[in-house]
Computed example of a mutant assay.
Amino acid sequence: MFGLELTTIWFVLIAVLWIGYFALEGFDFGVGMLVPVLARDETERRVMINTIGPVWDGNEVWLLVAGGATFAAFPEWYATLFSGFYLPLLIILVALILRNLSFEYRHKGDTASWRARWDVAMIGGSYVPAVLWGVAFANITAGVPIDADKEFTGTLFTLLNPYALLGGAVTALLFATHGAMFVALKTDGEIRHRARALAVRLGAAAAVVAVVFLTWTQVRTGDLSSAVAFVLAALCLLAGVAAAAAGREGWAFLGTFLTIVLAVAGLFLALFPDVMPSSTSAAYSLTTTNAAATPYTLQIMTWVALVFTPIVIGYQTWTYWVFRKRISTRHIPTAQLTAARD
């Protein structure tokens, strides 16, 4: 199909799904991480939460589809990944559940202590995945110990190596910067100006750490295509920070959005044709060929993807268009603010 192997097509599709997840859910995580930093009172906390209220659950669809597509298209990759990374992925899942519950239950109590407990769940549920996704993908890109039976032979401490921890720092800083850009784009008043100023500071720190990580990645596993993606990602981040400093929030958000898109794309380019390299022996690495499902399965999945992918993208685009306007403290109903202070 299209002159390409179906295994290659599905590797690209899975890469696109992960890119969409990190670029969209990334600012969700960033907003949650920055609530205690940017919001000065309950009103501003509600404003920040409301910026992502209409979209956060739709953004997580990308993760669900990426996991399902990996299971169906590359079952060996899925099996090795989820058995070897079981504990980190479980921690991410629990964090996401608590975070999602905080959005639903925070406003159902009238006491400050009730809201404070759910704020902890929201903030922690944003920080933990932001760091651990970076750790996980850094390990996938660099390679982990896999034996001839395609089984992970390391431990949790194997995954917590310096390169992977640096990857976690990069994703946390990038998502925080992305979230600050989004808050500046979606709000008005004092919180908008604070978010824009914070985005510049976070972006500068993210640029330094990201350049070190991407350079390290390029030296270890990269090629020309990944090098181009990484250079463009760095340029987009610098452009986004400059736009934020100039008060151009829309261009600033686009800059961090493209930074994440290009950086994740670069990781997948550095990974291909492997899907999970083995640090034990290159002969034991999982590739797009030996980890793939049967050709018939991939054919059926391809036709299903051709039908439903445009529908999902169209629906999400419509959602963002409908909720495109800025919000501020004046949009929070007075009755709800009075109840929140009681």
Rank of each mutant, 00 (worst) to 15 (best):
A73E: 08
G53R: 15
L81P: 06
G30Y: 07
G53I: 10
V55T: 15
M33L: 12
F29G: 04
L81Y: 12
R46Y: 02
T80E: 06
W56T: 09
E76K: 13
T51H: 09
N59Q: 07
T80Q: 07
N59L: 07
A66R: 07
A39W: 03
E60L: 10
W62F: 11
T43P: 00
W77I: 04
V37I: 13
L63F: 14
L81I: 09
W56V: 09
D41W: 00
I52D: 06
T51M: 11
P75W: 04
T51Y: 05
L34R: 08
G84M: 06
W56D: 03
A39L: 01
L81H: 11
M48H: 10
V35Q: 13
L38Q: 02
W62S: 09
L81C: 06
R45V: 05
Y78E: 01
I49Q: 14
V61Y: 06
W62R: 07
F29S: 09
G53E: 12
F71H: 08
L63A: 11
T70G: 15
M33D: 08
F29V: 07
F29Y: 15
L87N: 05
W62L: 08
R46L: 09
A66I: 04
W62A: 13
L38F: 01
V35C: 03
L34W: 02
G30D: 10
R46I: 05
T80A: 15
L64V: 15
I52G: 12
V31A: 08
L87R: 02
G67K: 11
P36E: 08
D41Q: 02
L38Y: 02
W77C: 06
V35E: 14
L64T: 14
D41Y: 00
M33H: 03
F82T: 14
V55A: 09
